[in-house]
Simulated scan of single mutants.
Amino acid sequence: MQAAQHLGAYVDYAKTDDNIIIFELLNNTFEKMFAFLPSKEQVDSLITEKKILVCYCSGKIAGLIHMDICKNISWIRQIVVMKEYRGRGIGGILLNRYLAISKDYVNEFMLWVDLSNIAAIDMYKKAGYIFDGRMANEYINKVGKIQKGD
């Protein structure tokens, strides 16, 4: 299995042409009842508002992160890697890029995670997220001021 760097992986904001693929990827990955998934129209708006980062490998979408910012708090709404790219570091690349571009104007990073998703939890811990204990079995977060230049 090739690591992400050998796949020509790079992260950029989603493009308008990616909207259908993003919509389908989100809806085919997450439970509609619990994930608060965006409609096709909302995906278009999220792309325009630069709230979706995409990791491209060889010109194809390998994964994405849907983020939101409110009052200096950034939430990861969804992060997903296509099945054929899992285990290659794509999620970590997306997460690190998201943290790098947000750190100058965000004081707190939060997310929800299913505690049975051990691979995701390990990735979040490596990025500095900590379990906050407020909602057992549901989310972990990274709290505290982010030093500029980290």
Score class of each variant (00 low, 15 high):
A3R: 02
A4W: 12
L7N: 03
L7K: 01
L7R: 01
G8A: 00
Y10W: 11
D12Q: 11
D12A: 15
A14N: 01
D17F: 02
N19A: 08
N19C: 06
I20R: 09
I20D: 12
I22C: 06
E24W: 10
L25H: 04
N27I: 04
F30I: 06
E31G: 02
A35I: 05
F36S: 09
E41S: 09
Q42D: 12
V43F: 09
D44R: 05
I47R: 05
T48K: 12
E49R: 14
K51S: 14
V54T: 03
V54G: 00
Y56F: 15
C57I: 07
C57P: 01
S58E: 11
K60R: 15
I61F: 02
G63P: 06
H66N: 13
D68I: 06
I69R: 15
I73Q: 04
S74F: 06
I76W: 00
R77D: 04
Q78N: 14
Q78R: 03
I79Q: 03
V81W: 04
M82V: 15
K83G: 10
K83F: 07
E84N: 13
E84A: 10
G87M: 14
G87I: 15
R88H: 11
G89P: 12
L99I: 14
I101M: 04
I101D: 01
D104Y: 12
D104M: 00
N107V: 01
F109A: 02
L111W: 05
W112I: 07
D114E: 08
S116A: 13
I118K: 07
I118T: 13
I121R: 08
M123I: 14
M123H: 02
K126I: 01
A127K: 01
I130H: 06
F131S: 12
D132K: 03
D132V: 13
G133R: 01
R134S: 03
R134T: 07
Y139T: 12
I140N: 00
V143E: 13
G144D: 01
K145C: 03
K145V: 07
K145W: 08
Q147K: 11
G149A: 05
D150C: 04
